[in-house]
Design a protein around this nucleic acid. Sequence first.
DNA 1: ATTAATCGGTAACCTATGTTACAAAACATG
DNA 2: CATGTTTTGTAACATAGGTTACCGATTAAT
Lengths: 224, 224
Amino acid sequence: MSICEILSKNRLFKEVDVTTIRQLLEGIGYKKLLYEKDDIIVMDGDWVTGQYIMLSGEVRGEMNNYAGKIVKIEDIKGYQLLAPAFLFGQDNRYPVDIIASKKTECIFIVRSDFSRLLQMDLTVQNNFLDIVSGKAQFLSNKIKFLALQPIKGKIASYLLKRTRNSLLNTIDLPYSQDNLADLFGVTRPALTRALRELDQNKIICAKGKRMCVLDKEKLKSFIQ
Amino acid sequence: MSICEILSKNRLFKEVDVTTIRQLLEGIGYKKLLYEKDDIIVMDGDWVTGQYIMLSGEVRGEMNNYAGKIVKIEDIKGYQLLAPAFLFGQDNRYPVDIIASKKTECIFIVRSDFSRLLQMDLTVQNNFLDIVSGKAQFLSNKIKFLALQPIKGKIASYLLKRTRNSLLNTIDLPYSQDNLADLFGVTRPALTRALRELDQNKIICAKGKRMCVLDKEKLKSFIQ
DNA sequence: ATTAATCGGTAACCTATGTTACAAAACATG
DNA sequence: CATGTTTTGTAACATAGGTTACCGATTAAT
């Protein structure tokens, strides 16, 4: 698949056809970059000098404090922009570490070129604004999630959101409880404890990675 | 002062002259709105249908959970846009309550008109992108501040940031400790306790609203 | 100047979560 | 199948911060 075809799947080029993308890219320089699993793509504090666009693979964003990681901000799969909200504005430094979770391919476009790209096409410009707005919305939800809720509230939000479309009220975690604890910004034993308590009170049934909501209303009441 | 002159002080119209603003506004409808102190301008969860632009006054944004406010997100003074990052993107609901802290005047432009306004002028469009990016950056800092730090870390960040340009290492809080506690997302007694401890250890000298940094290095070590 | 309202300091007690450590269970690999 | 590795469950203990309540000090209002 050509780069233009891959890019056409990116939210940035929504409603833009491949031919147009090809034309847009003509005057634009870019580097192609390849990362192995666990390679650090950018580090917290690095200056943002351009836009990374993923072509394949999977990365994660993590906020750290002095010792060890604390909060996993998000998993990013597929054809996305990395940290698009930090390219413009005043404070152009990455707020997170971005790390390849598997083999990952990106292109990198320097700011001036990327800026030109946006200016050449109104749809792309608007798409970018949508993406950045989406990021702000995501971050604002994250604040609510992280700062305003105790652990059981987080479990409740997480499970209810993910079982909304499931008939059985059951999901299998896509990763370990350890990972989930990172996502919640809590320690693993604390998460397990909370899960056990909800299980003992027959509000959920949690066994390893399989979780089932038994009492939706009670579970909801933990969300603040 | 005419509306156009006031708007020219808004970040959105940076580098745009008053004549141009007047032309831009010609095809754009707007409502003028007046709020008294403590009026609620928008509520958490309300649909965002357009853009508020402050002409005068002061408002604050607060995130709430079930009972009472928990985290003051920011004070907004002067000529700013309210919640610009929630106008576009997917989730067009306000994530905060926005409340007038004093008598405040705004105009309101519906989304379609505001969108048209952006499209008419490249500088305005870019300014808006900068504003939204700035909001995302602000929110990301907020996450670091709220989720990754214990109280003393927050005090340290707050004081060091604010004494950076002061020769005396001293500041007077612009509001009560109660307010500061809201900003930090903690309770007032907990904040006082932490302030007292830092004071007793001669790292800061805190007396009411007046705070002085005595040992910058030790204070820094609380920031994570 | 007197009173009322707000603000700051303090303390006793409670609770959620972190810390550490270990064992059982599940899973992966030779 | 046997072994090592990762994941999960559990428990004892420590700690930060929340809750409530009270009182003295400031500040504002009459």
